[in-house]
Structure formats: C-alpha cells, structure tokens
C-alpha cells in the first residue's frame, strides 16, 4: 500500500509540475499586463500538436521542439498585438472575455488542423522506469520536473538578477515611472505574451509522451493552471508552483484512490472553494497587494 501511495505521489508531482508551468505563465503575464490569459492552455495544446506534426514529418525531435516553441511564442506575440494591445484600456472583464474568445477560436483552429484524433510523442529518453522509494518513476517525469525547475530558476534569475527583469518589475508597479526610464509597458506586454506562448508550448511538448494529446486538451489544462494560480493567490510566482504541485498530488490521489472520473471535478471544486473561502489564495501571499 505505501508503494502505491508513493507511486501516486510521483505521478501527482509530474502532473503538478505541468499545472505549475501553466500557472507560472499565467501569473507572470497577469502580473506584468493585468490580463488573465484564459487562452494559456491552448498554447500548450498547439505547441504539443505542432511538435508532434513536425516530428512526424521527419524533423529531428530537438529541432521540432524548438521550432514549435518558437512558433507558439510568435503566436502569443501576434495575439497580444492583434487582440490584447488594442483593448489595453478596456476593463479587466472585457479583456478576460477577449482571451476566452481567443481560446475557443484557437481550439477550433486546432480541431480544423488536427481533427479529433489522439496523438502522442515518444519519450525523450529511452529506458525503463527508475525506482525511487519503491515507486516506479517514468523518466519523462524527471524531464517534466526538470523543466519546471529550470523555468522557475530562469524566471527568478530574470526578475531578481537582471536589469531588464528589474525594470519590468518596476513597470508593473508604476507605469508612468516606467515610461520615464524608457520602458514601454506595451512592449513589455508583448514580450510577456511571447514568453507565455513559449512556456505553454514547452509544457505541452514535455507532457506529450505521457498523456494523450488532443485538440481540446488545452481547455482543462488551462483551467487547472488557473486553479493552481488561484491557490497561490494569483500574483505569486512561488504560490503558483506550490499550487500546481498541490493540485497535481491531490488529483493523483483522488484518481488513484477514489475515482478517475472525478479528477476534473476536483480541480473545479478546489477552485470554487478557494475563490469563495479565501479569494486571496490559500497561501495568503497576496497580502496587501491590490489586484
């Protein structure tokens, strides 16, 4: 029995890392632009499908991955210019409706291109499972965990240790002051969407070997990214990671011990519970910050 619990813990952490990655992209964009991008999950779906198609067309996997990450990053930037930037003065609600519109359009587009079939990628590294603490761990899980750790440290390095990152943080706090020192909030918003496109695509590609990739997988992935972000208080990078891992583990135990059909419902129940009981997030990191 403890072996099974360990097993579920590891698959939960793998799943959670993906939610954490989506949540990281959401939270970063939200902090920088004030836009809650409900199309974030679609970036993952399209990135993943794109990589699968490129790979199937005979392009070496690494090239295919980088290419599709770059393409989805461009897609993110394009959408920001086409749909977010023109409405930048609109209310937060208008912007959320815009991103919902983008998300259903992207999903429809994915359906048009890839149909309703299920796709998959081979694992990044061959070989059997590793055994850790009595649990069999898929090597792909290590890749996913690695990506989460890499992303987190890159974000940390950028925002805390580089001049550009600090400048972006300043632009978030004070838009006028940012302009004075030569930062254009519009440009920052563009890069934020490029970045979240790239991050979403990377997350989608990394999970492709362990999940069924379909045109509509972005929706629930996006929803779970929000749940993770909301658990963490929506504006905290660390909170998003913890929220994602928490949700992943919770889901894994729910699916393993209760019923797998309730997995998706669980995420939504957690979302509602957090929103209704503690809208500032479970981790309470939001503090005085006014969103």
């Amino acid at each position: 029995m403890p072996d099974q619990l360990m097993q579920l813990l590891f698959s939960g952490l793998t799943l959670g890392s993906i939610y954490a990655l989506i949540a990281l992209a959401l939270v970063t964009t939200f902090n920088i632009t004030g836009v809650l991008n409900l199309a974030q999950g679609e970036f993952a779906a399209i990135g993943s499908l794109l990589a699968i198609s490129l790979y199937a067309a005979g392009i070496p996997s690494t090239v295919a991955f980088i290419l599709s990450i770059a393409l989805v990053a461009m897609l993110g930037g394009l959408l920001e210019r086409a749909a977010i930037y023109p409405a930048r003065r609109a209310s937060g609600l208008t912007l959320i409706i815009i991103t919902i519109g983008l998300s259903i359009s992207l999903r429809g587009l994915a359906l048009l291109i890839w149909g309703t079939e299920t796709y998959s990628l081979p694992a990044f590294t061959k070989g059997g499972p590793l055994f850790i603490g009595g649990a069999a761990v898929n090597p792909q899980s290590i890749w996913i965990l690695g990506l989460a750790i890499l992303t987190l440290s890159l974000l940390y390095t950028f925002f805390e240790l580089t001049y550009a990152g600090k400048a972006v943080k300043a632009a978030v706090v004070n838009r006028t002051a940012a302009r004075l020192v030569g930062i254009n909030p519009g440009t920052v918003s563009f890069w934020a969407f490029m970045g979240s496109g790239a991050l979403g695509a990377a997350a989608g590609i990394f999970i492709a070997p362990v999940t069924m990739t379909t045109y509509d997988m972005g929706f629930m992935l996006g929803v779970k990214g929000f749940v993770a972000a909301v658990i963490g208080g929506l504006s905290s990078v660390g909170g998003a990671v913890v929220g994602g891992l928490l949700l992943g583990v919770l889901e894994s135990y729910c699916a393993g011990l209760v019923s797998s059909g309730l997995k998706d419902a669980l995420a939504v129940i957690v979302l509602l519970a957090v929103l209704l009981v503690r809208p500032q997030g479970l981790l309470g990191v939001l503090g005085e910050r006014k969103i």
Partner: peptide, 20 residues
C-alpha cells in the same frame, strides 16, 4: 459544422475590442 466556434470566438474578440 463544429468549426463555427472559431468564428464565434473571433467575433467575440473583435466585438470586445472595437464595439463593446
């Protein structure tokens, strides 16, 4: 016909930007 949703999404986006 399920692709209609692509257009619904686009219309929603365009409306919210240009004619809320």
């Amino acid at each position: 016909g399920e692709y209609e949703i692509v257009f619904f999404g686009l219309i929603l986006v365009l409306l919210m930007i240009y004619r809320p």
